[in-house]
Design a protein around this nucleic acid. Structure first.
Length: 198
DNA sequence: GGTAAGATCAGC
DNA sequence: CTGATCTTACCA
């Protein structure tokens, strides 16, 4: 397990996105492998939070590459992004699904909070499949917005254990209503851990 | 000042 | 399909 270099993320998010597949996101004792991502491309991307300029919420997305941009989605869920490009550009890659690797019991507890007693038991596939689910599973929230993912001594960081996908598939992004034609979503081909069937 | 629309998810 | 619930944009 080694940390990820700044060179990997200090590029166009459409290049960084597929290169993040296979890397490990760790938060405390919980970790998962990145299976599915989407690129958000700043002023040229109407679906990006930074398309209309800086706000209180999106300021981290303008920071230097390798920071974690965490925002609240629909007032309820947290979504985690890896800031890319150069400082001030406002581009990032959204993490959409992980394969759980470590701390799976902790993830199960975190994901079970607030569920009805009658709800069916959570399978491993239910833990990190979707951007809101993976942050809940790892315990990532607003307090991690702006964290440095490239420093191994931090609570939350990116690691490379050498694993690489055999092949990668590409398609359009999920859950947006503008710029729906841009093929800026990538996932590990054939993986059962994606947020929706490939 | 009010309102609508989200980079979502769970439950019916 | 709907409701939950926070942030922002846009209009009055």
């Amino acid at each position: 397990m080694v940390t990820v270099s700044a060179d990997l993320v200090a590029r166009d998010p459409r290049l960084v996105g597929p290169d993040l597949l296979g890397l490990v996101l760790r938060q405390g004792t919980r970790a998962g492998r990145i299976i599915e991502v989407e690129a958000y491309c700043g002023t040229e991307d109407p679906a990006a939070h930074t398309y209309r300029g800086r706000t209180v919420r999106n300021s981290t997305m303008y920071g230097r590459a390798g920071l974690l941009y965490v925002y609240r989605s629909y007032g309820l869920h947290w979504c985690a992004n890896v800031v890319c490009g150069v400082e001030g550009e406002g581009v990032a890659v959204l993490l959409r699904a992980l394969r759980p690797l470590e701390g799976i019991e902790e993830m199960r507890v975190a994901r079970g909070l607030g569920r009805r007693a009658t709800a069916p038991p959570l399978t491993d596939r239910d833990l990190c499949r979707g951007p809101g689910r993976l942050t809940q599973a790892l315990g990532i929230g607003g307090q991690h917005d702006g964290a440095d993912l490239l420093a191994a001594d931090r609570d939350v960081h990116l690691l490379d254990d050498g694993w690489r996908p055999e092949s990668i598939e590409q398609g359009t992004r999920v859950g947006i209503s503008v710029a729906t034609d841009r093929p800026w979503r990538w996932w590990v081909a054939g993986s059962p851990w994606t947020s929706r069937p490939g």
